[in-house]
Nucleic acid binder design. Structure first.
Lengths: 193, 193
DNA sequence: AAAAAGATACATACTTGTAGGTATGTGAAT
DNA sequence: ATTCACATACCTACAAGTATGTATCTTTTT
């Protein structure tokens, strides 16, 4: 694989485990058999690496799911439930302690660096935008109660999901995560007409 | 005020703004006209300060609300809604960008330091425990649907709340926070018989 | 009651590890 | 001949912690 890609992916992995600030880019590179010189050939500084990870790895990963729903034609509620069930299935007892990479970075970096905040905020924005469109479409298709406040519900769904990761991470246990997501799923199934 | 208390409270303030790792304890002390020597007289090291903040400031602040509900006799759902409405009212356009101190520390420190994780986890645990008791009592008082899964709902409420802060922090906007909490409130009001 | 002996609550100055970054070198490809 | 894709060695700012000094207060001794 290309050196830059290797650096991006391995650093992402370590950032997921220890956060951005605690990540030592030179040690990560060394683990890959890559030297500091190579790192600074591809990235201006540590923050440039962080931004690249957000743009190139995190963003696509968080927006894809919702995009697909919009493009599909299955029942709206079913589609949302399927997506969240899929997201849920990706967490297990081993990785739940790591939390959600997006969530982690928001809490750690938003207050320290405005560019980080903006880039992460954009991911949330895009998710909210897509979810609102999905719900709106569901209302038009008469699959979702017309009284539903699309903005409120979209915010609530993303918030609950992120919060579920927080619970799981804090307790380092999949149980609380799954319990919370389960409630979210039944909440969503009650949005129908 | 006592030197130790001053150090605790001012450092807590700065940690809320910049996180634990980015906080420079000596600069915080200096701002208070206190020297490094005084700091290390009261705290073994930076982590001891962090632990003290969690134990002495954060813990009491997060557990008190739910404790009061258990001790009161008002309608369960009303009591929960009042509490969350009160919590909601404490955030505004100026401070929402800081996020929730508990949430912040969980994301930043849980993976880095196990003692931090345990102490923070205990706060989540206590909140879940109290909320479960509150819901259980509500069921007994026939104010809440008997089919309600107390564990799932307790997890969901805490997760949604924490997640709402995450949204607000990421967008540095009170709107998404309030929208999400609003949905949570209406979800809770639907828990009645 | 006075003096001596510790303890308390800091202040000052110094040390050290290291994270992050730079400057320069070099072999291969174009 | 020059650019590309790194490698090596060095630098430096500073966060964290330590060692030591000292004024004041308390306690004990005589």
């Amino acid at each position: 694989m290309e050196t830059r890609t290797l650096l991006l992916e391995k650093n992402f992995e370590v950032i997921c485990k220890s956060g951005f600030q605690a990540t030592r880019t030179d040690k990560v590179a060394l683990d890959l058999g890559i030297t500091k010189g190579a790192f600074y050939y591809y990235f201006k500084d540590k923050y440039a690496l962080g931004y690249a990870i957000v743009d190139e790895i995190i963003y696509p990963n968080y927006v894809g799911h919702w995009q697909k729903i919009l493009e599909s034609n299955t029942n709206t509620i079913e589609a949302i439930i399927n997506t969240i069930t899929y997201i849920k299935s990706k967490s297990n007892a081993e990785n739940i302690g790591l939390g959600c990479p997006l969530n982690n970075l928001i809490q750690e970096m938003s207050c320290i660096d405005e560019i980080f905040r903006q880039k992460l905020s954009k991911i949330i924005d895009k998710q909210l935008e897509l979810l609102q469109k999905i719900i709106q479409k569901g209302i038009q298709k008469k699959e979702i109660k017309p009284t539903t406040n699309t903005f409120n519900i979209a915010c609530f769904i993303i918030a609950s999901l992120e919060g579920s990761y927080t619970l799981g991470k804090s307790k380092n246990s999949i149980d609380v995560f799954e319990a919370s997501v389960q409630s979210l799923l039944s909440f969503i199934s009650n949005l129908n007409v």
